[in-house]
Computed example of a mutant assay.
Amino acid sequence: MADSVGVIERLWRYPIKSTGGEHLRSVAVDERGLMGDRLYAVRDGEGKFGSGKNTRRFRRMDGLLQLSSRYPRGTADQGPAELLDPHGQVVVDPTAYLRRHLGRPDVELAREGEISHFDQLPLSVLTTATLDGIRRAVPGVPVDERRFRPNMLVRTPPGTPPFVEDEWIGREATVGDTLRVAFLRSSERCVMINQAQRDLPHSPLILRTIARAHDNRLDALARIVIPGTVRVGDRLVLDGTRAAAIAS
């Protein structure tokens, strides 16, 4: 049975991984995810990508969230991603700037090759119900979706409980007219969500709250079943189809 859970309020794409993203009105989505999302990353001399955490593939690089990225004229097919400094100005030589900004002579801006820049799955979806729940738990701390870096923010009806995304796991959904996705799991959060970015101050309360309230997990992660185009205002409609398990 179909279940309309809300409408797309905002769309976000992050051309350069771990930098501030660009706000879109519509975007094409293929099997990889939003066209151009995290297509570029900051890579160090050991081949690890700049992130908010240290793992086998990623290296924590504080300072990236002070920067942002975009595509010329908003489309990924118009050339490489542009890096913007903390004042919103386009950087002429991204690699040289990143080396100065991060204090690391071994980094460079790199396009995705054989190794994915995604932490897990290509699509992250978050609801306003969950954001509102976090705001109530940390009054006085600025909380918006930029801390959690979703691709889609869904406006849910009044009375929707926080962490309603849990109910989507294992189900497929249609977004707009053509896009179809399968929700498989949620993201395990790290200290990156506490970090300052632009007008959002550093706050350790964010991660602490999510750890206490929801076992450090937040959002719904999906794979793409049928590519399509998504637009602000599109409905997200869940159905009863069970999502196939992702290979480990």
Rank of each mutant, 00 (worst) to 15 (best):
A245N: 10
G6W: 01
H202C: 01
R13Y: 09
P162G: 07
A28Q: 07
E145C: 14
R147Q: 09
G170K: 02
R59I: 03
V27L: 12
R242I: 06
G45F: 05
K48N: 05
Y97L: 11
I206S: 04
F49H: 11
E108A: 15
L184F: 03
A41L: 14
I246E: 12
L131S: 00
R242W: 01
I206Q: 01
S68P: 10
D215T: 14
D166H: 12
S69T: 09
T209W: 10
D44F: 12
L200V: 00
F58N: 12
R208K: 15
P139F: 08
R180V: 13
D199R: 08
A244Y: 00
R208C: 03
V29E: 02
G79W: 05
M152F: 09
D234P: 05
M1R: 14
R43V: 15
I210M: 10
A182N: 05
R135T: 11
P157V: 08
V225A: 14
N216Y: 11
N216D: 13
A76F: 11
L207F: 02
A137W: 01
P204A: 15
R100F: 00
T156Q: 05
V175A: 06
T174S: 04
D132G: 01
A129R: 01
A222W: 13
P72H: 03
R104K: 07
L102I: 09
H23P: 01
V154D: 04
P201T: 05
P72V: 04
V29M: 02
N54Y: 04
V230Y: 08
